[in-house]
Nucleic acid binder design. Structure first.
Lengths: 214, 214
DNA sequence: GCAAGAATATTGACATCGGCAAGATCACCC
DNA sequence: GGGTGATCTTGCCGATGTCAATATTCTTGC
């Protein structure tokens, strides 16, 4: 194994082309969007021939599926980061998760669309399915934190889960599309307060059940 | 003008190729999605050569832009239909509009994605801009109906508008993606009740301001 | 050590796509 | 009824995704 780190790109065998292609694909996606994504462009960016990706991903769909799965895991991580950073408890975890949802969409708009609004990834792929199920499980756990295991399993739990999810998703998708009209551009704190208020609204009475009714 | 209705497809000049191409494009979009959309496929479906669309729409983007504008107007009409069918008043108009929003997304998923989640239409196109502004104006009018012109112009009006929009959009986009887990498939009335409850949740206190607090 | 086979990457080919240019056909107007 | 502009076709080009054939390198067994 004669050091393959610096001289990797000069050799016939790349060394870690799979990871390099995922990096290249992410950058291509960022620059050109899902609809301008090109397998040959990825290969060029990674410095290999146009047919090289096939050995690692099969076809373009395979590469985009792997990228979507990778992005999905980062999406869950962004929500987790928010929850931990805020030390959120109870229903506050749902609010924090929603803000993390939007964080991810703003940071990686093309990846967000690849995951949620594209037919190109293979939704039956086991890795992608697992990533999606992990995201759903985290959401269910947050609903439990908000309502307790008893309520969370019932109709109110389902309603809360769907409402929080739909609100977060709607905000995120509209932000990516540049269609949230009153979101302040320069004012990060103001924007955050607005998003927080929108999330809180979707939670309804769940936000402060043990407190007095104001 | 020797009757051009039945024999139109046999002639060198089509007669109304622009409209025929829009029909063909809608069907192609429905079948293959935005990402599988093909200008040549549209031309084939309309029974003309592959270069014919250029004379009416310039390029593929032009055709998709015109289709998006057309779809946007239908999208507004779907919301209007709901509001009238329910005879909705006050904040109920926002709920009805949200249900119309979802109606459209379910009936025309690919068109919905073309409008809200695609970079291919030209968002600076005057016709498309006008359609978008009409949709926004209708939403503003519904907020006025819910809060009155006074409140609607203030911060609460902006918050209500964005919350209702984001909730409706989130539901619609998740439905199109097949990701609303608890939406009953066969039970139309149950599904409608669930969507209605989600919309109502996003409106917060605005739903029944003149009534007693239950 | 080293040869055989597997893994990895390249080259070349093909069908299809979007867009352009040149030519054919038709409608309309004076 | 002839000309002019609009409409449509044909042919072409570069780019793309995928496949087959080939070249290079790694690994494994002996």
């Amino acid at each position: 194994m004669p050091d393959r780190n610096d001289a990797a790109r000069e050799r016939y065998h790349h060394g870690d082309l799979r990871a390099a292609l995922l990096d290249a694909a992410e950058e291509e996606l960022r620059l050109h969007g899902v609809e301008g994504f090109t397998l040959r462009g990825c290969a060029r960016r990674a410095g290999v021939s146009h047919a090289a990706p096939a050995h690692h991903f099969g076809d373009a769909r395979g590469l985009l599926t792997a990228l979507a799965a990778l992005g999905y895991r980062r999406f869950v991580a962004a929500q987790e980061r928010r929850k931990q950073a805020e030390g959120a408890q109870g229903a506050g975890r749902l609010v924090a998760a929603g803000l993390g949802y939007v964080d991810f969409a703003r940071a990686h708009p093309a990846l967000f669309r690849l995951i949620f609004a594209s037919d190109r990834p293979d939704q039956d792929d086991p890795e992608l399915c697992a990533a999606g199920e992990a995201a759903f499980a985290a959401l269910q756990a947050d609903v439990q934190a908000a309502l307790g295991p008893q309520e969370a399993a019932g109709a109110e739990g389902r309603a809360l889960l769907q409402a929080a999810w739909a609100m977060a998703h709607g905000i995120a998708d509209l932000v990516v599309a540049g269609r949230l009209p009153f979101l302040p551009e320069g004012d990060a704190a103001g924007a955050e307060a607005m998003l927080r208020a929108m999330m809180a609204r979707s939670l309804g009475a769940a936000l402060a059940p043990p407190a007095r009714p104001s």
